[in-house]
């Protein structure tokens, strides 16, 4: 046991065993925060009869970057998609429990998903720009929500969003070109620019760098660092290094359970749960 730990993750302090056994699945760590932006209570998701995640209690703070980590199929993306009700579009998917935003459960029957999604933007794993011009990609959300009234405002918004996403210098001469003609990393930044053009309060990112090379990844990570000044960011990632670089807090999911959540330093350096430690040291049973 001791030998395993010392040869494992370099950040782990040797000689200290986690407190919680593998069989225990109740969440350990700090699930609540003061004045949360989003507060999840007993969230469970079923695909038809198959349970995807259950009993998730988690607060997401204001202007916080929270990373979701865990092995494939553990339910972290499913949880992420609960936060802007994108799971509604999947057939046979049922969500139970409550997710509070501004004191209102977003799964109440009287909640309209259109304003919700304007408030909670999303960036997907695979860059998915619209097959329209770069300009229209950015302007689209603001146009349908009526955030811009005329051409000048739209221009300003497009330029501003592209600048924030760090894409302006690369595309300023070809705004009329199709968004799909950009490279993968540029497309992903275009998608981020598209998301922030609506000026949401929360941005959900579902493995935004998984299809990008290290350079594009570094640019996006820098961008996330920038964006956390103004937005709450929930990011799902497969890269523990990425999680440790960019997030304030980290949540570890395992087989549909939220096993541990805490400050990123604590989770990576002093995991409380045996399962968390197994994962971050690369040991799987």
């Amino acid at each position: 046991m001791n030998q395993e730990q010392t040869t494992g993750h370099p950040h782990i302090r040797p000689g200290r065993s986690p407190l919680v056994e593998r069989t225990e699945r109740a969440t350990v760590g700090q699930t609540t925060v003061e004045d949360p932006r989003i507060s999840c209570k007993n969230v469970a998701v079923y695909y038809d009869a198959k349970k995807a995640i259950s009993n998730i209690n988690l607060d997401i703070g204001r202007n916080e970057v929270i990373a979701m980590i865990g092995p494939s199929g553990c339910g972290k993306s499913t949880f992420l998609r609960c936060l802007n009700r994108m799971n509604d579009t999947i057939e046979g998917c049922t969500v139970s429990g409550q997710i509070f935003m501004d004191g209102k459960n977003i799964y109440d029957s009287d909640v309209d998903v259109v304003p919700l999604r304007a408030q909670v933007g999303m960036v997907f794993q695979k860059p998915n720009p619209f097959p329209k011009s770069i300009y229209d990609n950015i302007a689209y959300g603001a146009r349908i929500h009526g955030l811009v009234q005329n051409r000048d405002e739209t221009d300003e918004l497009v330029v501003g969003s592209l600048k924030r996403a760090g894409l302006w210098g690369e595309v300023k001469d070809r705004l009329k070109m199709s968004g799909t003609s950009l490279s993968g990393g540029q497309q992903q930044r275009l998608c981020i620019a598209r998301a922030i053009a609506v000026n949401p309060e929360v941005i959900l990112m579902d493995e935004p760098c998984s299809s990008l090379d290290p350079i594009a990844t570094a640019i996006i990570e820098e961008l996330i660092d920038e964006l956390k000044q103004d937005y709450t960011i929930v990011i799902v990632t497969h890269s523990m290094q990425q999680a440790s670089r960019i997030s304030h807090r980290t949540a570890y999911f395992y087989q549909g359970d939220l096993v541990e959540v805490g400050s990123t330093d604590q989770v990576f350096l002093n995991p409380l749960h045996q399962l968390t430690e197994d994962y971050i040291t690369g040991r799987f049973e």
Binding site: T89, V114, F124, P129, Y140, I144, C191
Partner: peptide, 22 residues
């Protein structure tokens, strides 16, 4: 492609807007 649908919905397009625009 479903990714275009997701993109449209995630930006806050309504069902009709999604269909008509994308």
């Amino acid at each position: 492609s479903p990714s275009i649908r997701e993109a449209g919905l995630s930006i806050g397009a309504s069902k009709v807007q999604l269909v008509a625009h994308h």
